[in-house]
């Protein structure tokens, strides 16, 4: 079931478009913001609310890489793996994160605190290598700084 908050937010988006279905990406964003990820059940309730089939909603949900169709940790680390960061050595950061958290791309720590994902170009190539954790951008990151950076999120709710 969609919550009252979710319904209100979705209704607001529906008003901006000519027909309900066109608000599906916004609806997925809204539900993901509330629940952290998009479960099969979420797909079904969104589909019912926007008068679409669940398969149709899922075809959209699975297309976009920042809609999560699997549970993620409380904090999502997005490490840029594109060309400028490749030249400037993001591989070292990847190794560093693997050492600190013992997870590879696509994995979540057992305590469900961190998920690590590769991400195409974060658009700050003059400050490569770069990564984002949740909404925070880190630029010119050095391997030695990882521990300090990650520490902030261990205590953050």
């Amino acid at each position: 079931m969609l919550t009252e908050t979710e319904i209100q937010a979705i209704d607001h988006e529906v008003k901006l478009v000519p027909y309900k279905k066109a608000a599906v990406i916004e609806a997925l964003k809204i539900v993901q913001k509330e629940r952290g990820w998009i479960s099969d059940e979420s797909v079904e309730v969104i589909a019912a609310y926007l008068e679409m089939s669940p398969a149709e909603v899922d075809s959209v949900a699975t297309f976009y890489n920042l809609i999560f169709r699997k549970p993620v940790g409380r904090h999502v680390i997005l490490l840029c793996d594109s060309i400028s960061c490749y030249v400037m050595g993001y591989q070292k950061l990847y190794e560093g994160i693997q050492q600190h958290l013992n997870i590879k791309f696509g994995q979540t720590t057992p305590d469900k605190l961190f998920t690590l994902l590769p991400n195409p170009c974060l658009g700050c190539c003059d400050h490569a290598p770069a990564l984002m954790i949740d909404e925070d951008l880190y630029r010119d990151v050095k391997e030695e700084e990882l521990e300090e950076i990650l520490k902030k999120y261990r205590t953050k709710i």
Binding site: K21, A22, E26, V60, Y64, N65, I67
Partner: peptide, 22 residues
């Protein structure tokens, strides 16, 4: 947006704005 390079291609961008796959 919610990711994907293709959203920058102008007709795919229109599909994304219409709530479809880009």
């Amino acid at each position: 947006g919610v990711g994907r390079y293709m959203c920058g291609e102008e007709t795919a961008l229109l599909n994304a704005l219409e709530g479809k796959r880009a």
